[in-house]
Measured scan of single mutants.
Amino acid sequence: KKIKIKIKVYNPETKEVLELEIEVSEEEAEELAKKLAEELEKKGYKIEEVEI
């Protein structure tokens, strides 16, 4: 079964909002969402919402 992940991120420095969407297997979904959120935060983005 495929799971659709939508991530909306906001960069306070540039006032930019990015929306990302990807489909992955159920097993990958939670781990991938967690890794993406961590990487984006390292780059200065503030995570507003992660929906699985």
Rank of each mutant, 00 (worst) to 15 (best):
K1F: 05
K1L: 09
K1G: 07
K2P: 11
I3L: 11
K4S: 11
K4A: 04
I5W: 01
I5H: 01
K6C: 05
I7H: 00
I7A: 03
I7K: 00
V9W: 08
V9D: 00
Y10D: 02
Y10I: 09
N11G: 03
N11W: 09
P12V: 05
P12S: 05
E13S: 14
T14M: 05
T14P: 02
K15W: 07
K15I: 11
K15Y: 08
E16Q: 12
E16A: 08
V17I: 08
V17M: 10
V17T: 09
L18V: 03
L18R: 06
L18W: 08
E19R: 13
L20I: 15
L20E: 02
L20S: 02
E21D: 08
E21V: 14
E21W: 13
I22V: 14
E23C: 12
E23S: 13
E23R: 05
V24C: 13
V24N: 03
S25C: 10
S25T: 03
S25L: 15
E26T: 05
E26C: 09
E26K: 05
E26H: 14
E27L: 06
E27K: 04
E27C: 14
E28K: 13
E28R: 12
A29R: 03
A29T: 05
E30W: 14
E30V: 12
E30D: 05
E31F: 06
E31I: 07
E31N: 09
E31W: 08
L32K: 13
L32H: 04
A33N: 01
A33I: 14
K34C: 07
K34H: 07
K35P: 00
L36R: 01
L36W: 10
L36K: 02
L36D: 00
L36S: 01
A37F: 14
A37D: 01
E39Y: 10
E39A: 06
E39P: 00
L40P: 00
L40E: 00
E41Y: 04
K42R: 08
K42P: 00
K42M: 02
K42A: 06
K42S: 05
K43N: 04
K43M: 14
K43W: 04
K43F: 07
G44D: 01
G44T: 00
G44Q: 01
Y45I: 13
Y45W: 10
Y45H: 13
Y45R: 07
K46I: 15
I47E: 03
I47D: 03
I47C: 06
E48M: 15
E48Q: 08
E49I: 15
E49T: 15
E49W: 12
E49F: 14
V50Y: 04
V50S: 01
V50W: 09
V50E: 01
V50L: 09
E51Q: 11
I52T: 02
I52Y: 06
